[in-house]
Write a protein that binds this DNA or RNA. Sequence first.
DNA 1: CTCCTATGGTTTGATATCGAACTATATATG
DNA 2: CATATATAGTTCGATATCAAACCATAGGAG
Lengths: 149, 149
Amino acid sequence: MTTESRLFDLFNEIGIIAQLSGTMFERVMPDGMTLAQFTVLNHFVRLGGEKSPAQLASAFQVTRGTMTSTLQKLEAKRLIEMNPDPDDARGKRVKITDMGRRMRERCIEAIGPSLSQLVGEFKGIGFETLIEPLREIRTRLDSARNENG
Amino acid sequence: MTTESRLFDLFNEIGIIAQLSGTMFERVMPDGMTLAQFTVLNHFVRLGGEKSPAQLASAFQVTRGTMTSTLQKLEAKRLIEMNPDPDDARGKRVKITDMGRRMRERCIEAIGPSLSQLVGEFKGIGFETLIEPLREIRTRLDSARNENG
DNA sequence: CTCCTATGGTTTGATATCGAACTATATATG
DNA sequence: CATATATAGTTCGATATCAAACCATAGGAG
C-alpha cells in the first residue's frame, strides 16, 4: 500500500462523503434551493459586503460558468442583486437582499435537525479537528492546480 | 459558531476537495475514463472476485441507476463482463476483464505523477491520519441516511 | 398455492457541473 | 498611441448524477 494509494483512498472517502452530504441537504432544502445557492447566501451573511462573480467562483472553486448559472438562479428568485461595477465596466457587484437573508434563515432551520442528528452520530470522532487539515489540503490542492494549469 | 455550523464547514471543505480532486484526475485519465469507472476497475483488482451491480452501488454510495450507467460504459469498452446470476434470475454478476486490468494500470500510470506531486505538497499535513475518521463519518452518514430514508 | 412485500436492474427527465469558445473591457508593452 | 495579452462574464454542448417510476423475480405469510 503506497502513500500514493493512501492518498487516493483519502480522496475516495472525501468524494463519497461529499455526495452523501450534498444530496442529504438538498433533499430538505426549501424552494428548490441547492447547496451551491445556499452556500452563496451563507457567504454573504457571514462576511457581508459585495463580491464579484469571479471572486465567488474562486472562493468556492467552481468555474465562472457554473457561478454565472448559480447567480442567475438566485437573482431570478430575488435573493441577490447584481449591479455593474462602477470601477470596471467588465465586472459586476453581487450582494444579498433581505429576501436572501430570510431564505438563508429558512434553509438553516430546514437543515438544522439533520445537522443536529449528525452531530450526535459523530460524537467521539472529533470531527472538528479535521477541518483545519482539510482546509490546508484544499488550499494546496488549489495551488497545485493553478501551477499545472 | 455552533457545533452545527462547524459541521457544515467540514462538509463544505469536503465538497470543494471532492470537486477539485475529481476534475483534476479526470483531466489526465486516458480514453474518456471517469473517476467512477476507474474506481470500479480498481475495486475489482484490489478485492478480486465478482460482484452484483447492487453491491457495487452500495459500496460506492451511488444509486443503482447511476451504477447501471457506469457499468454500461465499462462493458461497452470491454473492460468488464456482465453475466446473469445463476442463483438469482433478477441479478447479474460483474467481473473485470484482462483489458480492464490493463486499463486500470494505464490509469494508475496516468494519475501517478499528479498523485506524487500532491503527496509532496501535503508533506507535513499527515493526511493519512484523516482517512480513518473520514471513513467512520462516511459509515455513520450512510446509516443516518438509511434510518431516515 | 396465492398474494404481498422486498429486491435487482433499467429507463427517464431534470439539473449541476465542466471545458471551451466568445464578447467586451482592462492593462501592459513597444 | 497602438497592439497584444489578460481578465470578467456568458453561452453552449457534453456528461454524471439523482429521484422516481417501471418490470421481473424472490421470499415470506396466510
